[in-house]
Design a protein around this nucleic acid. Structure first.
Lengths: 148, 148
DNA sequence: TTTCTAGTTGCGACTCGGTCGCATCTGCTG
DNA sequence: CAGCAGATGCGACCGAGTCGCAACTAGAAA
């Protein structure tokens, strides 16, 4: 019998409890929003979604949780070429790093995975004697629809 | 690995006068600072350097000039993995796009040019039917010195 | 050389993303 | 179930960047 959905700890929550990081109601809500997000969210969007579950959650709690996740390498921070505003977008860290392709006209974000990216990072590590922990490749331009 | 200084001084100003963009004392000072910079500067560093020449230049003039340069594709805007603060860094657009490698411990920024990067961008254009105008690849990790 | 004006500037007020200090509260372990 | 380290909410704060407006100026035209 599977547990009811609210009791299934997500991957992020599992990571927290394994490491003895305290899981609070507020954190659980933030993690849930990030885990179930279908697109890139910025901090204020995350806050709004969290507050639909628990209206008392504060901005700073969301920011602090995002910092925590970033420090543990569980989320990636994106700029998305500053298409809308100056803030950052967040997404769960995926198994495979991918390229973010942002259309400067319609604002659509596409993700693209290719082994060439992995090769490029390997080359940087070798040629520059550098240990890569995070990388971010963002591309801006016009998608095929907008070029018509 | 650092790029050679191949830029002819005054190119930005030349671009302006060719296009009939008004050249003011303030703009001249900002362009000069950007053209003679030996490292990546953020807006407030540019302002400080400009004010050493003309103390009356205002923040907003620097920001407006940076916007102008960005719009004309004459400078690149960098995040540099937010090593110090949230602001942006600027550099003259080079002939060849390069990767920015930021050491998360000592803060050193290295630039790296490779044809693999060009190939990767070509692949994105082809596979995603996307016209790339700007791209930004930033890498964070530990340099060889900091790993000792 | 002087005149004229569209474009630029300085200023101050503002927005917005993000941080911090502090009093209060709460997961968690014993 | 008690104790407390660590998390939260709140409000003040910070720094980056923007904007409206009156004053100024580069540079074309006379």
């Amino acid at each position: 019998m599977p547990l009811p959905e609210t009791q299934i700890p997500g991957r992020l929550q599992a990571y927290f409890s394994e490491r003895g990081i305290r899981i609070t109601q507020q954190r659980r809500a933030v993690l849930r929003v990030i885990e179930t997000a279908t697109k890139h969210l910025d901090a204020s969007q995350i806050l709004r979604k969290v507050q639909r579950v628990d209206a008392s959650v504060d901005r700073s709690t969301v920011y602090r949780t995002l910092q925590l996740l970033k420090r543990h390498g569980l989320i990636d921070e994106l700029d998305l070429m500053h298409i809308r505003g100056e803030g950052h977008y967040y997404e769960r860290k995926m198994n495979r790093e991918h390229i973010h392709i942002a259309c400067l006209r319609c604002g659509k974000i596409t993700e693209f995975v290719t082994s060439t990216y992995d090769k490029l990072k390997q080359q940087v590590e070798k040629d520059c004697h550098f240990k890569i922990l995070v990388s971010r490749l963002e591309v801006g331009g016009y998608c095929s629809a907008c070029r018509q």
